[in-house]
Design a protein around this nucleic acid. Structure first.
Length: 268
DNA sequence: CCCCAGGCGGTTG
DNA sequence: CAACCGCCTGGG
C-alpha cells in the first residue's frame, strides 16, 4: 500500500534517529521490522512511502503519527536559530507511537550503551522470548511480554550479555506484570505523573523515564536530555533555557536536536 | 592495551 | 544539594 509521501515521512531519518531499535535496512534500502504482531517491509519509491504488511493502513498511520500536523506544532521552534537548523535537517522525522512496554525495556537497555549493542541485546531478547511470526520469506519475533519476563531471574538473562541492565529489565517486568505500574493508564495521565510512576522502578532514572514517556506513551512535551543534548544545550541555547518554551511538542524538537547533533557533531 | 558509550543507584563531602 | 564511583559488556 501507499502509506504517505516523503514530505510527511522520511523513513531513514525516522528509523535512524535513535528512537527505535528494531528496524533494519537491507542493501536496497528496504526496511524490515515488526510493530506489535505485525511485521512489515517499508521502502521509498519516488516520493511515496510504500508499506507491505498484513496490518491496515490506519495501523501504520497511527504508528507513524501521521494524523498530527508537525508543521503547526513546530512554530515555536524557529525562535532558536540552532533548532531551526536541526529542524530543516531532520524534516520528515516522525515520533513513532511505539508500544509502551517495549519502549520502557528498550531504553533501560540503552543506558550507557552503544546502538549496535542495544540492537543486539533486544534482538536476542525477542528471539528467545518473543513469538515467531512469518512474513514474506522471513521470520520475525514479537517483543516479549512483561508477564513472560517477570517469570525470569538474572541467571536466565545471562545469554543476553546485557550486564547490570538485566536486573533492571526484570524489575521493570515485575512492576508492569504486577500492575504496580499500568503503562496504558499513563498514556492519558499527566506527563509529570507518568514520569514519576516510571521512576519507581529500580533501574529507571530520569533519562530513561523521559524517553519512555515520549516514545512509549507519546507525551510530546517530554524532553529527554542525554549527553548529546547536554552538549547542544550548553553550546547553542540560553543558560536559562526551559523546554516548555518549545510548546507542547518539545519532544519533537528534542529529536531534531538529538539527530542533528549526533550526525554532525557539535558545531559552532 | 585503554577508553568509553544515548545512565543508575548508592555513598560521600 | 553536587560530585564521584562501580557496574557488565564490547566496539573502536
Amino acid at each position: 500500500m501507499i502509506l504517505t509521501n516523503t514530505n510527511q515521512l522520511d523513513i531513514v531519518k525516522t528509523f535512524e534517529c535513535g528512537q527505535c531499535f528494531r528496524w533494519n535496512a537491507d542493501k536496497d534500502g528496504q526496511y524490515y521490522g515488526i510493530v506489535g504482531d505485525s511485521p512489515a517491509r517499508i521502502h521509498t519509491q519516488g516520493n511515496e512511502i510504500i508499506v507491505e504488511s498484513n496490518a491496515s493502513k490506519e495501523y501504520w498511520e497511527n504508528y507513524f503519527d501521521l494524523q498530527s500536523d508537525y508543521e503547526s506544532h513546530s512554530q515555536p521552534f524557529s525562535q532558536f536559530p540552532y533548532l531551526k537548523t536541526c529542524m530543516d535537517y531532520g524534516i520528515g522525522i516522525r515520533i513513532l507511537r511505539q508500544n509502551s512496554w517495549e519502549a520502557l525495556c528498550s531504553f533501560i537497555i540503552s543506558q550507557c550503551n552503544n546502538i549496535k549493542r542495544i540492537k543486539g541485546i533486544i534482538e536476542r531478547l525477542c528471539t528467545r522470548y518473543g513469538d515467531e511470526i512469518f512474513f514474506e520469506d522471513k521470520v520475525f519475533y514479537t517483543f516479549p511480554s512483561a508477564w513472560k519476563l517477570a517469570q525470569l531471574n538474572v541467571e536466565d538473562l545471562e545469554f543476553l550479555r546485557a550486564g547490570y541492565r538485566s536486573q533492571y529489565i526484570i524489575n521493570a517486568a515485575k512492576a508492569v506484570d504486577s500492575k504496580e505500574i499500568i503503562l496504558d493508564e499513563l498514556i492519558d495521565a499527566p506527563y509529570e505523573r507518568a514520569t514519576k510512576e516510571l521512576l519507581k522502578i529500580n533501574g529507571v532514572g530520569i533519562k530513561v523515564a523521559n524517553c519512555t514517556v515520549l516514545f512509549g506513551l507519546h507525551h510530546m512535551e517530554a524532553f529527554p536530555i542525554d549527553v548529546w543534548m547536554k552538549k547542544a544545550l550548553n553550546e547553542h541555547f540560553p543558560k536559562d533555557f526551559c523546554s516548555s518554551t518549545l510548546g507542547d511538542y518539545a519532544g519533537l524538537a528534542q529529536q531534531y536536536i538529538f539527530y542533528y547533533t549526533r550526525e554532525n557533531g557539535i558545531t559552532r
